[in-house]
Amino acid sequence: MVLGLLFIPLAGSFLSMLPSRRVVRPPGAVDEKLFLELCTRCGICVDACSSEGRGTLEPCGILDGVSMMGTPKVNPLRAPCEARYGICEGRLPCVKSCPTGALRWIEPEEIKLGSVSWSPGRCIAVLGGECLVCAEVCPVPGAITPRNGIPVFHSNRCVGCGRCVYACPADPKALILMPEGERRHHWGRAGFSR
């Protein structure tokens, strides 16, 4: 019985401290630590996202980390995020559906989910093919500029929508969406506004 009573505090605090992968969060997510506290893993944002067609959001699995399971992540392999230059611009169904304030309203021009990371060794253009699909689909002026038939990525301009990752025809993909440079709401700075 004593073991039982200690089980939750011990196991819970141990599990919460296990390392976890960094994932790309939906737009308007608060700081990661606060996000993990506030998110109830209810999946409503994922539902709201998929109501717009094939949504980009999916719940994290156990491989992303024990403390991450059920929290939403952007997976550009499913679909690009439409929050910037897309269907959801100015509407953000994921943010509006979040009941606990883990996702908060963010203006379209503030959105930056992360940036893409390029693996030249997998890129068709580098390997001698005719491909600039990433530059073709990129909606951000100047984020991907072709130079001599090879894409050049400017991560400071990238908003992290993942269109290029989604469209990249290389197998395995030459592009990965990473949370590098992501813009989050900071605890105490941005109030809850809806």
């Binding site: 067609g53 690009p80 439409e82 897309g86 699909v133 993942g162 469209a167």
Partner: peptide, 9 residues
């Protein structure tokens, strides 16, 4: 549409 864009939209 081009991949990454929603045709209906």
């Amino acid at each position: 549409a081009v991949r990454g864009y929603n045709t209906s939209n």
